[in-house]
Simulated assay, not measured.
Amino acid sequence: MKKVLILSFGMFALGFDAYIVAGIIPGISETYHKDVSQVGLAVSIFTLFYALSAPVFASLFAGKSVKKILLYSMLVFTIANIITAIAPTFTILLVSRAIAGAAAGLFSPLAISAASELVSIEKKGRAIGLTLGGMSIGIVLGVPLGLYVFDMLSWQASIWLLVLIGVVAMFGILVYLPSIETPTPPALFERLKMFLDKKVTVTVCITFFASISSLGLYTYLSPLIKEFTGTGNLMMYLWAWGFGGLFGSLIIGYLIDYFKKPKTLVTIILLILTLSITCIPLMINLPLLRYLPFFVWGAMGWASQAPQQHILMSYQPNNGSSAVALNSSLNYLGSSVGATLGGGVLAFGFGAISLIYFAVISMVFSILLQFYSVKSLN
Score class of each variant (00 low, 15 high):
G338P: 06
P293V: 13
F294W: 07
G338H: 07
Y50C: 13
G216I: 06
V39Y: 02
K199S: 10
S108G: 05
G133M: 11
F46G: 04
T267D: 04
A51R: 08
P317L: 15
K226C: 01
G351Y: 15
M152Q: 05
S59M: 12
V43C: 02
S249V: 09
S73L: 10
L333K: 01
G342V: 14
S335F: 14
S37N: 07
P144V: 15
L71C: 05
N81V: 06
S37E: 12
S249H: 05
S29K: 01
I256G: 09
A323D: 11
I353M: 14
A352E: 11
M170C: 10
Q156V: 08
V21N: 03
A323P: 04
K3S: 14
L145G: 04
L48Q: 08
L341D: 08
E181P: 00
G40R: 05
V76R: 00
I137F: 15
T203K: 05
V345D: 07
T201G: 07
L145Q: 11
M300Y: 06
F12S: 07
N81R: 01
Y32S: 01
S29A: 06
I6E: 02
A103T: 10
G10T: 10
L94T: 10
Y332T: 06
E227D: 12
L60G: 00
V202F: 11
A299M: 15
V200H: 00
M235L: 13
F57M: 10
T201L: 15
V36L: 15
V149Q: 03
G216N: 05
S179H: 14
F259Q: 03
P262K: 10
A54Q: 00
V345Q: 06
T274Y: 07
F46E: 03
T207H: 01
Q308M: 14
V168C: 04
C205A: 11
A18V: 15
A22W: 12
L282I: 15
